[in-house]
């Protein structure tokens, strides 16, 4: 996994440095992100683009959780789709996207995890779920430094999210579980290329 992470990182920096040398101002639909938490590891990096006048964003993430912090060393990858239904609100030199929501499909690497139940080990639909693939729902917002000099390509975002396993558990156990118990916070930085 380490070479893959390095490759993605160097690819990101390569794209970023290309952009830095060029002077043209045509807005690019591409961006890179770095995220803290959110079921993608301690730290994850992503690259993606926006569509439909920035109403839709798709990203590919690669995340790492060190054993020291997470109790187990875990590599995750995910595809993430974010829908931005509302127009950004201008707050002085900032643009605030007050609502961003979406889904993330994560895949956890490792022999302990199965995407699909191995047929040589289990009868058909023995467990009926995947331990490597996790769907994750989130809701959040983003502040773009649109009119801040030197930072105009940057934005910071926040999300509260929960995986589908927790959501199902909450629906079935409304007395013990609560949104506060199943939703967690994630923070990230987005840079337009």
């Amino acid at each position: 996994m380490k070479p893959a992470a390095l490759f993605l990182l160097s690819l990101l920096f390569y794209t970023v440095s290309l952009r830095a040398y060029s002077q043209e101002r045509t807005p690019s639909p591409f961006h890179v992100k770095a995220q803290f938490a959110g079921d993608l590891g301690f730290l994850s990096v992503g690259a993606g683009r926006s569509f439909l006048k920035e109403k839709l964003e798709t990203d590919l993430f690669l995340g790492y959780l060190p054993q020291k912090i997470g109790g187990d060393r875990i590599f995750t990858t995910a595809i993430k789709a974010t829908y931005v239904p509302l127009r950004a609100i201008q707050v002085t030199s900032l643009d605030w996207q007050s609502l961003r929501t979406g889904l993330q499909l994560g895949y956890t690497f490792g022999n302990e995890y199965f995407a699909f139940e191995p047929h040589d080990k289990y009868p058909k639909s023995y467990y009926g779920f995947s331990t490597a693939l996790h769907l994750y729902y989130f809701l959040g917002g983003q502040v773009d430094f649109t009119r801040v000099e030197k930072l105009n390509r940057f934005g910071i975002y926040y999300e509260v999210g929960s995986n589908v396993e927790y959501i199902v558990s909450y629906v079935q156990n409304p007395a013990y579980l609560s949104p506060a118990k199943i939703f967690n916070l994630a923070l990230g930085v987005r840079m337009k290329l």
């Binding site: 803290f36 959110g38 079921d39 959780l65 997470g70």
Partner: peptide, 22 residues
């Protein structure tokens, strides 16, 4: 900042298979 945030137990979840215990 990240290290400070990482001490906020329960506010963040890094991964559903993290093993962080009290």
């Amino acid at each position: 900042l990240l290290l400070a945030l990482s001490s906020c137990d329960g506010l963040f979840e890094y991964h559903p298979n993290q093993i962080i215990l009290d």
